[in-house]
Design a protein around this nucleic acid. Sequence first.
DNA 1: CGATAAACGAGACGGTACGTCACGTCTTCAT
DNA 2: ATGAAGACGTGACGTACCGTCTCGTTTATCG
Lengths: 191, 191, 191, 191
Amino acid sequence: MTGGRRRSETSRLAILDAARDLLLEGGYEQLTIDAIAGRAGVGKQTIYRWWGSKGAVVADAALEGGLAQPLTPLPDTGDIETDLRRWLRAWTEHLTTAQGTGLILALTAATADDHTVADVLFERFTQPHEQLLRDRLERARGAGQLASDAPVPTIASVLIGSLLYRVLTRQAPPTVDDADLVVRLVLGGAG
Amino acid sequence: MTGGRRRSETSRLAILDAARDLLLEGGYEQLTIDAIAGRAGVGKQTIYRWWGSKGAVVADAALEGGLAQPLTPLPDTGDIETDLRRWLRAWTEHLTTAQGTGLILALTAATADDHTVADVLFERFTQPHEQLLRDRLERARGAGQLASDAPVPTIASVLIGSLLYRVLTRQAPPTVDDADLVVRLVLGGAG
Amino acid sequence: MTGGRRRSETSRLAILDAARDLLLEGGYEQLTIDAIAGRAGVGKQTIYRWWGSKGAVVADAALEGGLAQPLTPLPDTGDIETDLRRWLRAWTEHLTTAQGTGLILALTAATADDHTVADVLFERFTQPHEQLLRDRLERARGAGQLASDAPVPTIASVLIGSLLYRVLTRQAPPTVDDADLVVRLVLGGAG
Amino acid sequence: MTGGRRRSETSRLAILDAARDLLLEGGYEQLTIDAIAGRAGVGKQTIYRWWGSKGAVVADAALEGGLAQPLTPLPDTGDIETDLRRWLRAWTEHLTTAQGTGLILALTAATADDHTVADVLFERFTQPHEQLLRDRLERARGAGQLASDAPVPTIASVLIGSLLYRVLTRQAPPTVDDADLVVRLVLGGAG
DNA sequence: CGATAAACGAGACGGTACGTCACGTCTTCAT
DNA sequence: ATGAAGACGTGACGTACCGTCTCGTTTATCG
């Protein structure tokens, strides 16, 4: 059993592109498999053959479609406060755009809907970003800029969580000042 | 001109109960208006007459159906660290149960899906809880347990956000130790 | 258990009309449930709610849509040969039209496809027509125009079968002369 | 023009066998090219390379697959009534088996569906059988057992039509007695 | 011999139609 | 007037097959 046509890379990319475009145009609710197939010029079965659900397509589109913030290491100016500010400000600004907000909401809906999507996204999106943050924090701890017993994973999750909370409440989008306050709080405490 | 049948309280409660039960059994995706109507022994029109969407019913069910953590003021032992720990531990334990996790995921999905639901939930669920937290924090600031310039709203959103992040990643549920670490971080800082 | 909207007679008729029109336009193969629903301005579910299959709709359309030869008693001029000729000629002419042929082919396909359709059509289309024929034949036997032991059911089925054979072979359509020959054969024999 | 692989006889037979088996198992409707290819262990392209449509495969399977009653000349005992009885009884018994009925229904469905199939089947199945019947009838007429003006083609089509009618109505299968009545009617008439 | 080329099994592709589900609206009858 | 029942038009779902199109692989003929 050797034969068989190979998977079409053209179709794969057309599907991810279509999903990304439709997501940004109309949000997760408006996104349908029929629309993706139509826009991509592809049969529905070609989608179902390779992805198990709408959420899985969205996750892939986010990861490969260039939707998400690129996964670049945090800058290391030597000063942890400066670097965390920069990182959090960049995300904050990303989440100020309709595109950034829509994406996170879509991914959140997909995550809350479907455990398998949650796992994929955690492994390939959330976890890597969190890891970059942890790496920078560990280096800061090594350099004596953080307490030797500073709970690095907790710091990372708190920083990310505060962003998430802002997006999900769907009230005012987070501002640069908010970002700075969070960094100051996490580094300096409120006591 | 005067008369007419009054709204049936029985039906109202049956609908909220049915929505709650179905939500906990199958999650937000499995929840349908038809199923709620069927389980509640109610016509669909009776639901649409009083609620505008599935999300609105879910929000109401969460709020009135006894699903959510009751909205009680934080204890005030005089020590802010003790009180925050208690509050965060209580939520952490609530989110350890399948029911608690399922509820938050359902409400998150509803929030990410539907802006109007997001508003209702924010106003009647998120904001009140955040307000309780803020009240206690303000009192602590007045008592000199927090710095005079402590950013109370930021503290509150960071505490809630860290919980949310744990639930949404759907990895390990948060533990009591995690809760304590978050409180210590927020109060003492990592620097 | 009393309430509920009643079945829409408008929709019922629109469906049968659409099925009839599409059948005559494109044949049984081109006929799809989607097309019927679209043409009738009706949801597919409304079709599936009341008919079990495409064949069932076609059968109904044939019966109620005015497609089939009307079910009128055979004339009784007193002479059985004249009356049988008239009956068989009328059918022959009906089957000379594209409409008549298409209908019979469609009903035949539906019958061969689906046992339940076969039963419905037999009971409401084939059998009634056969019964009319038998009634006239019995009267002729009573009047002494047929042998006292003439096998009336056999005569009826032979007359109908000869028509069917002509349509199904899809060669030349039957002619008036063919009809007369069949009648003469059945009445007079070939011996 | 250099060489090239020759058509595989193994595959050809496997396809016809598979088509025949599936036809008898599920009827024309259930028969799909995918199923034939799968059962025959053959690629779909191999089917489409040599046959133009499902109907063409079915026709070939019926003709070469040994499904149909073998095409043997009618016996000639010298007595036309005896011989017609034998012929009609043989067919009647063939159509009493599930296999015989299923085959005729499938071929009828294929015929009603697809004009090209109708032509192929008429030419290679129906016509030859009808010809055998006509040959015997002509001989009988020559021998003075039939009237000199006996309409031989009409007799043949009436005999076959009566069988077809019985199968298609899908009520009771025809019996040996029915066969005898038809023969007597056709030879002796009802008058 | 090798090179060439057609036919092969396999199976992915763009499509069409399927039959089902849920939506939110609309009668209908009973309370 | 409100409620339970449930049919309605709409539209997305996920599946089944269609007929076409690559893929290597096999098998024959020809140079």
